[in-house]
Amino acid sequence: MPKLTEIRWHARAGQGAVTAAKVVAETALQAGQYMQAMPEYGPERMGAPIKAFTRISDEPIEIHNNIEFPDVVIVLDESLLDVVDVTEGIKDGGVVIINTCSPAKAVKEALGLDDSVRVACVDASGIALDTIKRDIPNTPIVGAFTKVTGVVDVEVFKGLLAKNLSKKFGQEMIDANFTAVDRAYKEVTVA
């Protein structure tokens, strides 16, 4: 079977998870891979729990369903941990990446995960507030994702980010986003 990475995003509507799911897919395409990105559409209210999905593979992707057994779970809002079973179906050897100030070891214990599943924590909201000056944790958390998984390259991601941002913003905003990505890349801790 071809190598397929399945990523499930958990967030609250408005946090940019759908955009992040898409940008990660586009980053994979830049590297010549096959990809899919899709939101799970439902009632769209700001703050409501939402899911999005990204698939990345070296081979064409044929399946068109939701991701039940993810390799990677990304949680953009830690308050969801009390509301949604974010780790449902996660594969052995998978990784959960969470936007939180808590240490990875404590979160891993709280989630009661199998030893083979890694937990990566990064204060993506804090980093976003410091750099981009708004609580948009999606950009920094992708920085952490590139480091923890190696599925897409951080420099390719930054290149795409600059291209997308330059349509609406100046160099200052691009630099702030780059700093956010680099900081998350450096600061993410894994247990």
């Binding site: 898409k22 897919a25 096959y34 990809m35 899919q36 990105a37 899709m38 559409y41 992707i61 068109h64």
Partner: peptide, 10 residues
């Protein structure tokens, strides 16, 4: 609908 219309694909 959604599955093909709204998914980003290559």
């Amino acid at each position: 609908g959604f599955i093909t219309t709204h998914s980003i694909d290559r």
